[in-house]
Design a protein around this nucleic acid. Structure first.
Lengths: 206, 206
DNA sequence: AGAAAATTCGAGTACCCACTCGAATTTCAT
DNA sequence: ATGAAATTCGAGTGGGTACTCGAATTTTCT
């Protein structure tokens, strides 16, 4: 027997198309939550977008809350920011590259921005996700800034922890302004400006 | 005749307690929208908090949208940030003072943060308010930074417009992180750090 | 005091919400 | 092929939503 058979029932895995269906649903939910927020978006909206009944949707994700959590996990997969450490690039280059990449996926940025602020409201299911995300990001960037400091490439007087906190804040704030006025706000420019203030140029090898 | 009398009707102003009622309702709506967002908060919640029927509430504010706009206007009155120019203080001091003040009114900060991000979603009634607010803030701060630059107190290479955009972004981003982790994030510290990087100390009068 | 206007509310409307239940249909391992 | 599991859905449940309507009550002006 390949699987547990409690009594005499034989469990069978999900069918072939199942995984693809789940991805389709997640993409639709991603759109809906980005456009209307978690509270403003409905399961019916998502089901309609997939071309599925609301009931069938709930077969894959047993509650709206579960759907949201899955969408947030998928967002992490798309952006790959769950592991901001394992880059070979330096801090500056990796941040700028991601920011440039984000310019092409405004929907993902919108989802992030909308849900992040919504999550500070009472008993929002995304609250833990964002709290932990910020904690992780601050720690990760603080380490990178500390490395730069050790190389003498951090401007004297700058605290790595504070720089990390500020970098995350600046980035998020710029994205919010960019979503409201894409023509007038340049996220990458703002981040470059901050790095120019904080990290000193690499010493020429003389 | 003191007022227009179309036909023969004699208009009478609102009664004595009316204005106070309106303020009470606005305060309750402020709380509700901060705690649950615009979409998540209901007129019933607000009415319950005031101790009024939902119908009576709609006598004062004919729609939920109107109520939100009134709340946003009231927020401006509270923080007085509609006129960030007419301060006698310097840019740095006035920003830091406001940030210190905000530490005592987390509810106002929460309302602002939640509604701002929510307003980037489809056809949100607050969208215009926040778009215009950002435009106004960026222009105002850019002028202040330009004044500093004229006095030789802006670090060389720093663009006033970019600094204004970044200051607003940093401030908002710090507030978001502060709401999610008040013990770990210090908004004032982050802002001071940025000013230390960007504006040079006043030349001693020798 | 009397009348009109402002305020209050109970009841109702039409609609949307997340979620459940039971049954029909499709897939797939044997 | 066949039977059991996975998938789908129609119908319903209980509840909430913003908002309307008509009438009762309270306030204010004359």
């Amino acid at each position: 027997m390949t699987t547990k058979d409690v009594g005499r029932a034989a469990r069978r895995g999900p069918y072939a198309k199942s995984e693809e269906r789940r991805r389709t649903i997640l993409d639709a939910a991603h759109e809906v939550f980005a456009a209307h927020g978690y509270r403003g978006g409905s399961l019916q909206d998502v089901a309609d977008k997939v071309g599925l009944s609301q009931t069938s949707l709930l077969h894959y994700f047993p509650s709206k809350r579960d759907l949201l959590m899955a969408v947030l996990e998928r967002r992490d997969e798309i952006t790959g920011d769950a592991f901001p450490d394992d880059m070979e690039d330096g801090l500056v280059d990796s941040v700028i590259r991601t920011a440039l990449f984000n310019e092409n996926i405004p929907g993902v940025v919108e989802l992030y921005t909308v849900l992040c602020a919504e999550s500070v409201t009472d008993s929002h299911p995304g609250r833990v996700y964002f709290t932990e995300r910020f904690e992780r990001l601050r720690k990760s960037y603080a380490r990178r800034f500390a490395e730069l400091a050790a190389e003498g490439r951090l401007r004297p007087g700058v605290d790595p922890d504070e720089a990390a906190m500020s970098l995350v804040a600046l980035w998020d704030g710029l994205q919010t302004q960019w979503l409201l006025a894409p023509e007038e706000v340049d996220v990458v420019k703002g981040l470059r400006g901050y790095f120019n203030l904080v990290v000193l140029p690499e010493p020429s090898p003389n």
